[in-house]
């Protein structure tokens, strides 16, 4: 049981970081960056490539993270800003960010070849045994990074002026720009943070999955699913979604059967969405949410008649 929890949380932390990368961008700009998975891939490939070329691990990782952060900002300017300037409510960014995703991963495949390559082992060698359950230090690090990311982001959001204005922008960009907030600066910051979070997820998972140009697809999808589970409104909730997805997948695998991890989390999600349509961690305490969810459900049933 403890093993399920630890394994689930450690992989869930990675899903959660990717989901958070989606959510931070969505929070400020109302855009879902479909190239988020590819930002993770950028960090993995650069780190792997540079460390293979003989650079020390810490330097390769720093360059990898810097690159994914920068790539996030580039995506904003190339694929998102022009679309939003035309029509703030259009969904055209779906196509342009997806286009960037295809370009990034094909370019990486051209540069590095399509086959998986080694990734620095980092902390994945060392094992820790807690109450009969084992966890590698790398996995422990993933959980720690996830906690730091959530706490750090929440403090930033609530305690700093920049964060507070960011909140205002997310609720009403037109009003915010009317009072003089520089919406562009916030969007750039959001895409940069998104790139950094996705890159961090990449460095954390790299020792387990190795480096492959097409990893972005895989983690983009799981991160997106985690985002859906947690709810899209708040980055911290997205992290919650990732952790839940991780624990549910590992739990389903252990207790139901190996392929149950394919469907079990989604069955849970469907039930959750029926009860609380705005995601598991949307707002308020769990009981109240459950009650109001059921209430709303019956109200809708009545209303539809």
């Amino acid at each position: 049981m403890l093993q399920v929890l630890l394994s689930g949380l450690s992989i869930g932390a990675v899903y959660g970081l990717v989901a958070m990368a989606f959510a931070v961008v969505f929070y400020v700009t109302r855009v879902i960056n479909f190239a988020t998975g590819q930002l993770l891939m950028v960090a993995i490939m650069l780190t792997a490539g540079l460390s293979k070329a003989g650079l020390p691990d810490w330097l390769s990782i720093s360059v990898g993270l810097t690159a994914s952060t920068a790539a996030g900002v580039v995506i904003y300017f190339v694929a998102v800003r022009p679309v939003l300037r035309f029509d703030r409510f259009s969904f055209a960014w779906l196509v342009s960010t997806l286009g960037v995703a295809i370009v990034l991963q094909s370019a990486a495949a051209i540069i590095y070849g399509p086959t998986s390559q080694g990734f620095p082992k980092l902390l994945n060698r060392d094992n820790l045994v807690i109450g009969g359950a084992s966890i590698t230090l790398q996995e422990l690090l993933a959980i720690i990074v996830a906690v730091v990311a959530v706490v750090g982001f929440e403090i930033f959001r609530r305690r700093t002026l920049f964060g507070k204005v960011g909140m205002a922008i997310s609720s009403d960009p037109e009003m915010a720009s009317a009072i003089g907030a520089r919406v562009t600066a916030y969007a750039v910051a959001a895409f940069a943070i998104g790139g950094l979070l996705a890159g961090a997820a990449g460095v954390l998972i790299g020792p387990i999955t190795y480096a492959n140009p097409y990893l972005g697809d895989t983690y983009g999808i799981t991160g997106f699913v985690a985002l859906m589970i947690g709810g899209i409104e708040r980055p911290a909730a997205a992290m919650g979604g990732g952790l839940v997805l991780g624990v549910l997948s590992v739990g389903a695998n252990t207790f139901i059967g190996s392929q149950a991890s394919d469907w079990f989390p989604f069955v849970v999600v469907v039930v959750v969405l029926l009860l609380a349509p705005h995601g598991l961690f949307a707002s308020g305490d769990a009981l109240k949410r459950l009650a109001s969810g059921i209430g709303r459900r019956t109200a809708t049933l009545k209303g539809a008649n």
Binding site: Q3, V4, S7, I11, S116, I205, I208, T209, Y210, N212, Y214, L215, D217, T218, Y219, S249, V250, N253, T254, S258, S261
Partner: peptide
């Protein structure tokens, strides 16, 4: 992509 997880269980 070889990103299969849950191998531990």
């Amino acid at each position: 992509t070889g990103a299969t997880v849950g191998l531990k269980s």
